[in-house]
């Protein structure tokens, strides 16, 4: 037990929590936007892969880091547009399309990587985002290392939650988006286009997912390698449910998951790690997430029109 306490009071643990949470926060916000508009986007896993690759490749090719983020976002939006066209005007099964997008985006990223770097065995590195030094705050003892040693992208992730929250609950656009996921007929009867709102939500949401992926190659690590997204997209789907489709609660979920993840890595290195196989530690975040999901979201209000295609003029 003292080992856990030691971990919890170390500043590096809290810094790791924020770092691990960042890509999850971006992608969870992206998924939340899609689902609030009524579209389940299972392309998230693949869109994160394409974002991780596109951002990294841009910087590797010699362009700036922020250009890389923008390119990642555009790549995600392109796959989002494909997902949107298939699920919104065509009204195809969101499950099938989403899994298809994941396979397509993942394979495209790997293929492009091999085309660009056919003979490389060790993944080449780029110069990633560096921790942002905030005068005063970053110099605080303990707190400075724990909370104020993050890159600009992490701060952007937290800002993203605030923006999504404000837009959803304080603007006409957010009202229309939430209505599209609850009762698209209400949107249509008030003279708005359900199709346009849903398309927009899927495209923007996919852009955010891709930025989440780009965080991995451009802030957390400095190279692109296969399997690096490693199911984070699926975790984000669960985080949206955990957060009851609310940005603030979803952020909390992302932090909680990141906390368990940071904890299990550190537990592996303690005395317990000598006795217990490391796979058991790897399970901890998932087991606790399932538990939290059961406790938190059994009474959550699911957007009523989630996964229901809307076709105008049909009877």
């Amino acid at each position: 037990m003292t080992e856990i306490v030691d971990i919890l009071i170390s500043a590096s643990f809290w810094a790791a929590v924020l770092r691990i949470a960042s890509p999850l926060i971006f992608a969870t916000m992206g998924e939340l936007i899609c689902e609030r508009a009524g579209v389940l986007n299972l392309g998230i896993e693949g869109i994160m892969v394409i974002g991780a690759f596109a951002g990294w490749m841009t910087v590797y090719a010699g362009l700036g880091l922020w250009t890389g983020v923008a390119v990642a976002m555009l790549a995600g939006m392109a796959f989002g547009a494909l997902h949107g066209v298939l699920t919104v005007p065509f009204g195809l099964s969101q499950h099938v399309v989403g899994l298809g997008i994941t396979l397509l985006a993942t394979a495209s990223a790997y293929y492009a990587y091999r085309l660009a770097l056919p003979e490389v065995t060790n993944p080449p590195r780029i110069e990633p985002f560096q921790p942002l030094h905030i005068p005063g705050l970053s110099d605080l003892p303990w707190l400075g290392e724990a909370l104020f040693s993050q890159t600009a992208l992490t701060w952007a992730a937290f800002a993203c939650v605030a923006v999504v929250s404000l837009v959803l609950y304080r603007t006409p656009l957010g009202l229309a988006l939430r209505a599209a996921g609850e009762n698209p007929h209400a949107v249509e009867a008030q003279g708005l286009s359900v199709g346009a709102i849903r398309m927009g939500a899927v495209i923007v949401g996919s852009g955010l997912m891709a930025v989440g992926g780009a965080f991995l190659t451009m802030s957390a690590f400095s190279s692109f390698f296969f399997e690096m997204v490693n199911g984070r997209g699926w975790i984000c789907i669960a985080l949206v449910v955990f957060g009851a489709w609310k940005p603030g609660k979803a952020l909390l979920g992302a932090l909680l998951f990141a906390g368990f993840d940071a904890l299990q890595v550190r537990l592996q290195q303690t005395g317990m790690g000598q006795v217990v196989p490391y796979q058991v530690f790897l399970m901890i975040p998932y087991l606790l997430s399932i538990l939290a999901l059961i406790l938190m979201s059994r009474r959550a209000h699911v957007p009523a029109a989630l996964m229901t295609p809307f076709n105008r003029g049909e009877r």
Binding site: T171, P172, A176, Q190, L192
Partner: peptide, 11 residues
């Protein structure tokens, strides 16, 4: 819902 511009900043 839908009464003003979607892009106006507040409700």
């Amino acid at each position: 819902l839908g009464t003003g511009s979607l892009w106006s900043p507040g409700l």
